[in-house]
Protein backbone atom coordinates (compact mmCIF):
# COMPACT_ATOMS: atom_id res chain seq x y z
CA UNK A 1 0.00 0.00 0.00
CA UNK A 2 1.07 3.52 -0.73
CA UNK A 3 2.34 5.41 2.26
CA UNK A 4 3.76 2.50 4.20
CA UNK A 5 7.27 3.29 3.05
CA UNK A 6 6.94 6.84 4.29
CA UNK A 7 5.83 5.64 7.71
CA UNK A 8 8.64 3.08 7.85
CA UNK A 9 11.10 5.86 7.15
CA UNK A 10 9.66 7.88 10.00
CA UNK A 11 10.20 4.86 12.24
CA UNK A 12 13.87 4.66 11.26
CA UNK A 13 14.54 8.30 12.05
CA UNK A 14 12.64 7.99 15.30
CA UNK A 15 14.79 5.02 16.25
CA UNK A 16 17.87 7.10 15.60
CA UNK A 17 16.76 10.00 17.74
CA UNK A 18 15.70 7.79 20.61
CA UNK A 19 18.96 5.86 20.85
CA UNK A 20 21.26 8.70 21.67
CA UNK A 21 24.31 6.49 21.91
CA UNK A 22 24.21 6.26 18.15
CA UNK A 23 25.43 9.83 17.98
CA UNK A 24 28.95 9.62 16.68
CA UNK A 25 30.39 13.05 16.32
CA UNK A 26 33.92 13.25 17.61
CA UNK A 27 34.31 16.70 19.01
CA UNK A 28 37.72 18.13 18.53
CA UNK A 29 39.70 19.72 20.12
CA UNK A 30 37.45 19.73 23.15
CA UNK A 31 33.85 19.29 24.10
CA UNK A 32 31.37 20.53 26.62
CA UNK A 33 31.20 18.08 29.45
CA UNK A 34 27.87 16.97 30.85
CA UNK A 35 27.40 15.79 34.43
CA UNK A 36 27.53 12.22 33.22
CA UNK A 37 30.93 12.77 31.65
CA UNK A 38 32.27 14.43 34.78
CA UNK A 39 30.92 11.67 36.96
CA UNK A 40 32.53 9.09 34.69
CA UNK A 41 35.87 10.87 35.05
CA UNK A 42 35.42 10.68 38.81
CA UNK A 43 34.18 7.07 38.70
CA UNK A 44 30.95 8.02 40.38
CA UNK A 45 27.26 7.73 39.84
CA UNK A 46 26.14 11.00 38.33
CA UNK A 47 23.45 11.55 40.95
CA UNK A 48 25.87 11.24 43.84
CA UNK A 49 28.34 13.36 41.88
CA UNK A 50 25.75 16.08 41.49
CA UNK A 51 25.15 16.11 45.24
CA UNK A 52 28.80 16.22 46.18
CA UNK A 53 29.87 18.81 43.60
CA UNK A 54 26.92 21.17 43.15
CA UNK A 55 29.08 23.99 41.80
CA UNK A 56 30.61 21.86 39.07
CA UNK A 57 27.22 20.42 38.24
CA UNK A 58 25.76 23.86 37.78
CA UNK A 59 28.71 24.91 35.66
CA UNK A 60 28.45 21.87 33.46
CA UNK A 61 24.75 22.50 32.98
CA UNK A 62 25.61 26.00 31.86
CA UNK A 63 28.06 24.47 29.40
CA UNK A 64 31.05 26.06 31.07
CA UNK A 65 33.17 22.98 31.63
CA UNK A 66 35.24 21.85 28.71
CA UNK A 67 37.15 18.61 28.57
CA UNK A 68 39.39 17.47 25.80
CA UNK A 69 39.33 13.91 24.56
CA UNK A 70 42.10 12.04 22.89
CA UNK A 71 41.30 11.70 19.23
CA UNK A 72 41.06 8.06 18.31
CA UNK A 73 44.15 7.45 16.28
CA UNK A 74 45.90 4.32 15.23
CA UNK A 75 49.67 3.96 15.77
CA UNK A 76 50.10 3.66 12.01
CA UNK A 77 48.71 7.16 11.55
CA UNK A 78 50.94 9.10 9.18
CA UNK A 79 51.35 12.40 10.90
CA UNK A 80 53.58 15.42 10.76
CA UNK A 81 56.61 16.06 13.00
CA UNK A 82 58.81 13.43 11.39
CA UNK A 83 60.83 11.48 13.90
CA UNK A 84 64.43 11.42 12.79
CA UNK A 85 67.19 9.54 14.57
CA UNK A 86 70.53 11.15 13.97
CA UNK A 87 72.39 8.12 15.27
CA UNK A 88 70.90 5.88 12.61
CA UNK A 89 71.10 8.27 9.69
CA UNK A 90 73.99 7.82 7.31
CA UNK A 91 73.09 10.72 5.08
CA UNK A 92 72.46 8.47 2.12
CA UNK A 93 69.59 10.73 0.95
CA UNK A 94 67.38 7.83 -0.12
CA UNK A 95 64.46 9.68 1.41
CA UNK A 96 65.20 12.75 -0.68
CA UNK A 97 65.44 10.61 -3.80
CA UNK A 98 62.18 8.82 -3.23
CA UNK A 99 60.12 11.79 -2.22
CA UNK A 100 57.61 12.28 -5.07
CA UNK A 101 57.57 16.01 -4.44
CA UNK A 102 61.26 16.55 -3.80
CA UNK A 103 60.72 18.42 -0.57
CA UNK A 104 63.54 16.83 1.43
CA UNK A 105 66.90 18.49 1.28
CA UNK A 106 69.99 16.81 2.71
CA UNK A 107 73.51 18.22 2.86
CA UNK A 108 76.23 16.19 4.54
CA UNK A 109 79.48 17.35 6.01
CA UNK A 110 82.05 18.44 3.45
CA UNK A 111 85.11 18.62 5.67
CA UNK A 112 86.08 15.00 5.66
CA UNK A 113 85.13 14.31 9.26
CA UNK A 114 83.70 10.84 9.91
CA UNK A 115 84.50 9.64 6.45
CA UNK A 116 85.95 6.34 7.62
CA UNK A 117 84.12 3.08 7.13
CA UNK A 118 81.37 2.42 9.65
CA UNK A 119 81.06 6.04 10.62
CA UNK A 120 78.09 8.22 9.80
CA UNK A 121 78.37 11.47 7.97
CA UNK A 122 77.52 14.56 9.91
CA UNK A 123 74.24 15.91 8.61
CA UNK A 124 74.41 19.65 8.17
CA UNK A 125 71.03 20.22 6.56
CA UNK A 126 67.95 18.08 6.75
CA UNK A 127 64.99 20.18 5.67
CA UNK A 128 61.53 18.71 5.24
CA UNK A 129 59.05 21.21 3.84
CA UNK A 130 55.85 19.86 5.33
CA UNK A 131 53.98 22.74 3.77
CA UNK A 132 54.17 20.76 0.55
CA UNK A 133 54.27 17.29 2.03
CA UNK A 134 51.43 14.92 1.21
CA UNK A 135 52.36 12.37 3.88
CA UNK A 136 52.60 9.45 1.51
CA UNK A 137 55.37 7.98 3.66
CA UNK A 138 57.56 6.90 0.76
CA UNK A 139 60.61 8.54 2.37
CA UNK A 140 60.09 6.36 5.42
CA UNK A 141 59.73 3.30 3.23
CA UNK A 142 62.92 4.19 1.39
CA UNK A 143 65.14 4.65 4.44
CA UNK A 144 67.39 1.59 4.63
CA UNK A 145 68.50 2.24 8.22
CA UNK A 146 65.13 3.07 9.79
CA UNK A 147 66.35 6.52 10.67
CA UNK A 148 63.30 8.42 9.49
CA UNK A 149 59.80 7.78 10.81
CA UNK A 150 56.46 9.37 10.27
CA UNK A 151 55.30 11.28 13.32
CA UNK A 152 52.00 11.06 15.06
CA UNK A 153 50.98 14.69 15.47
CA UNK A 154 48.76 16.70 13.21
CA UNK A 155 48.55 20.12 14.78
CA UNK A 156 51.40 21.87 13.04
CA UNK A 157 49.68 25.04 11.90
CA UNK A 158 52.07 27.98 11.59
CA UNK A 159 51.71 31.63 10.80
CA UNK A 160 54.54 31.73 8.29
CA UNK A 161 55.18 29.35 5.48
CA UNK A 162 58.86 29.20 6.36
CA UNK A 163 58.01 27.86 9.79
CA UNK A 164 56.58 24.80 8.10
CA UNK A 165 60.06 23.71 7.03
CA UNK A 166 61.33 21.27 9.61
CA UNK A 167 65.09 21.75 9.80
CA UNK A 168 67.74 19.56 11.33
CA UNK A 169 67.78 21.34 14.68
CA UNK A 170 64.07 20.89 15.11
CA UNK A 171 64.29 17.27 14.09
CA UNK A 172 66.99 16.69 16.67
CA UNK A 173 65.13 18.43 19.45
CA UNK A 174 61.69 17.06 18.71
CA UNK A 175 60.08 14.44 20.91
CA UNK A 176 60.56 11.10 19.23
CA UNK A 177 57.14 9.56 18.95
CA UNK A 178 57.40 7.61 15.75
CA UNK A 179 54.43 6.21 13.93
CA UNK A 180 54.53 2.50 13.17
CA UNK A 181 53.96 3.16 9.46
CA UNK A 182 56.34 0.81 7.65
CA UNK A 183 58.11 -0.03 10.88
CA UNK A 184 56.87 -3.51 11.76
CA UNK A 185 59.37 -3.84 14.59
CA UNK A 186 57.52 -1.11 16.49
CA UNK A 187 54.26 -2.92 15.95
CA UNK A 188 55.64 -6.10 17.42
CA UNK A 189 56.09 -4.31 20.71
CA UNK A 190 52.92 -4.96 22.61
CA UNK A 191 50.73 -1.99 23.36
CA UNK A 192 53.01 0.44 21.69
CA UNK A 193 51.32 3.75 21.20
CA UNK A 194 53.12 6.73 19.76
CA UNK A 195 51.32 9.09 22.10
CA UNK A 196 52.86 7.85 25.29
CA UNK A 197 56.52 7.39 25.05
CA UNK A 198 59.58 8.79 23.48
CA UNK A 199 61.47 5.94 21.87
CA UNK A 200 65.24 5.75 21.98
CA UNK A 201 67.20 5.34 18.79
CA UNK A 202 68.35 1.81 19.49
CA UNK A 203 64.74 0.65 19.87
CA UNK A 204 63.30 1.83 16.59
CA UNK A 205 65.46 0.04 14.02
CA UNK A 206 65.15 -3.36 12.50
CA UNK A 207 68.68 -4.08 13.71
CA UNK A 208 71.33 -2.61 15.91
CA UNK A 209 73.64 0.01 14.57
CA UNK A 210 75.41 -1.79 11.72
CA UNK A 211 78.87 -3.01 12.55
CA UNK A 212 81.81 -2.58 10.20
CA UNK A 213 81.51 -6.18 9.14
CA UNK A 214 77.87 -5.85 8.39
CA UNK A 215 78.41 -2.83 6.28
CA UNK A 216 81.17 -4.48 4.34
CA UNK A 217 79.03 -7.48 3.65
CA UNK A 218 75.97 -5.57 2.79
CA UNK A 219 77.06 -2.56 0.90
CA UNK A 220 80.62 -2.96 -0.35
CA UNK A 221 81.01 -6.51 -1.59
CA UNK A 222 77.80 -6.56 -3.55
Amino acid sequence: MYGLGLIKGLGITLKNILFLQRRNTTQYPDRKASIIDLAKLDNKNFISYAFTNPMKTLKSMMGMIVISDKVDQHPRFRGEEFSWYEERCTGCASCAKFCPLGIIKIVTDQTGKNYAEGQNYDIETFDIDIGRCMFCGLCVEACPYDALHMGSGFEEGQYKRNDLVIDVERLKKAEKKPSTWFRPQLEQKDDYSPFDEEIAWDKVGRHQKPSKKDLKNKWIRK
Binding site: F77, R78, G137
Partner: peptide
Protein backbone atom coordinates in the same frame (compact mmCIF):
# COMPACT_ATOMS: atom_id res chain seq x y z
CA UNK B 1 43.46 4.13 9.10
CA UNK B 2 44.38 0.98 10.96
CA UNK B 3 45.73 -0.49 7.74
CA UNK B 4 47.79 2.35 6.41
CA UNK B 5 47.64 5.36 8.65
CA UNK B 6 45.55 7.49 6.36
CA UNK B 7 41.85 7.73 5.68
CA UNK B 8 41.48 9.13 2.17
CA UNK B 9 44.85 9.34 0.44
CA UNK B 10 45.84 5.82 1.26
CA UNK B 11 48.86 4.87 -0.90
CA UNK B 12 48.33 1.36 0.34
CA UNK B 13 49.40 -0.86 -2.51
CA UNK B 14 52.79 -1.30 -4.10
CA UNK B 15 53.75 -3.10 -7.28
CA UNK B 16 54.24 -6.64 -6.04
CA UNK B 17 51.84 -6.62 -3.13
CA UNK B 18 50.82 -4.27 -0.38
CA UNK B 19 53.18 -2.17 1.64
CA UNK B 20 52.91 -3.98 4.96
CA UNK B 21 50.93 -6.76 6.55
CA UNK B 22 47.74 -6.03 8.43
CA UNK B 23 47.74 -5.63 12.19
Amino acid sequence: EILCGARITLSYMRPGGIFQDTP
